[in-house]
Amino acid sequence: MNVIRLMIVAVGGQGNLLAAKVLGEAALLTDVPFRMSEIHGMAQRGGVVESAMVFGDANSSLISDGEADILAGFEPLETLRALGKCNKKTMVITNSAPLPPFAAAVGEANYPDQYEIQQKILDKAGTLKSFDATALAIEAGNIMAVNMVILGALSRTDLLPVSTESITETIQNKTRKNFVEVNLKAFALGYKQ
């Protein structure tokens, strides 16, 4: 089976690990080999959270520089920071709504503008899909559902070896009961992007 390497980057608290877990459970459901490695050092204290996922017949659970097939970012600056993982074929999916780090939020550093971010991504990666996932999450009923919106957009690509059905089934069964409806709605909104 073809090996697909997916990198998800986010700011602590954006639900990166839940998104990765949903993909892992969906892979398990359909017997797709899956391994994931996460770096969540001090996630709750505002740091960056990375999940590297490897689907298919490989052994490692880590993605080297230039070797991601897909890079998904829940926050544009973090997508940009992870560009080292991309090559000219990498598909990038990113939220376009910024969550400025403190230095940028208080005017001590510049947050790159949206056009600049998109240019830099396209210089390095293959394709780019950038949209306001935060707005869609709010539309679905909870700003915390950015992760499900991005999952929806990921599911739309034909690169991901897990089916949309297995992902929605996992969301149904493995995410918190009182969030399932919002999660599915957010997923559907992301899927349409």
Binding site: G46, G47, V48, L80, R81, P101, F102
Partner: peptide, 12 residues
């Protein structure tokens, strides 16, 4: 390599 000079996001 990945772009540098990005505003850092250290844990706080």
């Amino acid at each position: 390599p990945a772009p540098d000079n990005l505003p850092p996001r250290p844990p706080t």
